[in-house]
């Protein structure tokens, strides 16, 4: 029988010496679904994301895409599979221009590695125009001259550059104003409408609750719950996070 999930993590375990950062975590992601990945600090969210993105390799466990096992050995491999991430600290380079940031690690080049700046500038502008709608800065502007929201949009534009199927947003609103947060929320919904699946990591549970279809809750490296939003409440999600699964419907995992 064909799985309802296009992306699956199976028994992912990641150890750093004696520390078990992820302990036997399994889950799946459906097409055009927004999944909230939540948990306290140190729950293992960022480690899990790094493995999905190929920055770290699991100690044990596998990832599957369209039912086939995939070895995500580097961020470049992840991107080629249609998986990309926007990190909490945005992973931007302030002195580099917008176009250099958007194409960092994936520049379009000709022979001898010659950069195709003209095409890249056009593509960068196109992506930003869709995201920013109102005012798009010149794409050769250094990122350090942009506002927090604009930087976020540059980071998202980079993640959307290639045909992305699964987008991971790690604390995308932590450094933003209220208006900018709303804008990110609208953007996430728009991406879902385009058929893109999203793993959304956030500390503001109320904000996450409004956006997502499902919650995966981690605590101390373990998955303690996997709940559809329609079957739970904000209070229960908070209770699960705070208690580490001791309170709430931990049988749902």
């Amino acid at each position: 029988m064909e799985s309802e999930y296009f992306f699956e993590a199976s028994h992912i375990t990641k150890k750093f010496g004696a520390v078990v950062a992820n302990d036997d975590i399994s889950f799946g992601i459906r097409k055009a679904e927004i999944v909230g990945l939540v948990g306290d600090n140190g729950a293992g969210k960022t480690t899990l994301v790094k493995q999905i993105m190929g920055v770290e390799r699991p100690t044990k466990g596998d990832f599957y895409l369209d039912g086939k096992k995939v070895e995500i050995s580097s961020p470049t491999v992840a991107k080629s599979l249609g998986i990309n991430a926007v990190y909490q600290e945005l992973a931007l380079f302030p002195s580099l221009s917008i176009v250099e940031n958007i194409f960092a690690g994936s520049q379009l080049t000709g022979p001898l590695g010659i950069s195709k700046w003209k095409i890249m500038k056009e593509k960068a502008y196109e992506k930003l125009r869709v995201l920013m709608k109102d005012e798009v800065p010149r794409v050769d502007t250094p990122v350090k001259e942009l506002s927090g929201g604009q930087r976020q949009e540059v980071a998202i534009a980079r993640a959307l550059l290639f045909n992305v199927r699964l987008l991971i947003l790690d604390e995308p609103t932590s450094a933003l104003s209220v208006r900018e947060r709303e804008k990110i929320g609208e953007l996430v919904t728009a991406l879902k409408d385009q058929g893109i699946s999203i793993i959304y990591i956030g500390h503001n549970i109320e904000e996450v609750f409004n956006l997502v279809d499902r919650f995966i809750i981690l605590s101390r490296g373990k998955k303690i719950a996997d709940i559809e939003k329609k079957n739970t409440s904000l209070e229960e999600v908070v209770a699960l996070i705070v208690s580490g699964g001791a309170i709430g419907r931990s049988h749902l995992k």
Binding site: V55, F93, A104
Partner: peptide, 14 residues
């Protein structure tokens, strides 16, 4: 320049 400015970010973007 990217590596010099933010090596962790450089690793993350591949």
């Amino acid at each position: 320049r990217a590596i010099g400015e933010n090596v962790k970010a450089a690793e993350k973007v591949g």
